[in-house]
Structure formats: structure tokens, C-alpha cells
Amino acid sequence: MSDEAFSDINGNRISLDCQRHSDFCGEFTVSSPKLSFLKVTGCTCALWLCAYTIFFFTEVTEVLSVAIMLSLVGMMGHLHFLKIDHESLLVIGSLGIQMTSSYASGRESTTFIEMSKVKDVVINEAIYMQRVIYYLCILLKEPLHPNEVGDIVPVFQSCKPRLNCLIEIYKQCQEILAQS
């Protein structure tokens, strides 16, 4: 029931919302900041200025209309396919783990992993974009050898919370997993 402020690996503020529905079920939502108005205005202005410069030298009016179309489509594409507002992890002890990412446009994509396939939830380290970061991941069982670790599914891939936030989620996940 807590709602605390943490930051992601780039120093942006993110918020973590932990909801424990029962002892066997918990939902963890990490929300990243909304699309900043300044950034949108900046991008649009830059694109339009470029278009206007080209128009100034070539005097082809299509350039301007293409620029407007591009900025509109780009904006929609960004909201629909790239910008993720919330990422949530729903852990139900007896059932499985569900990961949901909600895009800024309202689109949601969901992945569900059955509990029989889950080996554990751990915090791991990885080299990412010239940095070394911590991330939370779900370890899956190797289908043929249930004691071995198979694939790794990273969670909160777009928000990338820092270690203190990950530990908070990790502890609660472990509590739920231990009880089931």
C-alpha cells in the first residue's frame, strides 16, 4: 500500500506502488514520468525549422506538409509503440507471474509465466550501454532438467529502477514465493 519515490538509472524520478492483495498475491507498479511538454515542443520545433529551411531554399511547399505529417505520425508512433508509462509485475503465488507494460497511448502488452515454469526471482547484474546495472529478472526452469536454470526474463526493462527499488520489490516477491 506504499507509494514511494525512487529514481531510475538515469536519475529520473519514478514511483513504485506496491499493492499486497493478500499473502499470496502482490502487484508492483513502477511508473516513469510523463512525456515532458518541453521535450515534445523542442522536437517539433526542430523538425519544423529544418523543414522551413529546406523550403526557403527550394520553395517546394510539399516539404512543409510532409514535415507536419511526419511530426504527427511520429508523435503518435512514439506514444503508441515506444513510450511506456507504467510497468507492473503481478505475482500470484499459486498461479504465476504476469508482466504488463502500459504505453502512453493506453495500449497494454501482457506476458504471463506459469508458476510451474518459474524457478526463482533474483536481482542480477549486467553490462548495459557502457554501464553496469542491476536488474530484476525471473529465472525459468530448463524444460528437460527442472533443477537447472534455463532462460532469464528481465522485468521493468523500460523503467530500469535502481537497486534500492529493486530490493523492495525483490523482498516482497520472495515473501510471496516462499508462502506458496
Binding site: 526463482d120 533474483v122 536481482i123 542480477n124 547484474e125 536454470v149 530490493i167 525483490y170 523482498k171 520472495q174
Partner: peptide
């Protein structure tokens, strides 16, 4: 074994 360490060290923090 890296998973084990990540796992156990965080458990220790816990």
C-alpha cells in the same frame, strides 16, 4: 553461480 550470489547477497540485506 552468479545468480546464487545475487540471490543470497540480497537475501542477506533482507
Amino acid at each position: 553461480s552468479n545468480y546464487h550470489l545475487s540471490h543470497s547477497s540480497v537475501e542477506l540485506l533482507n
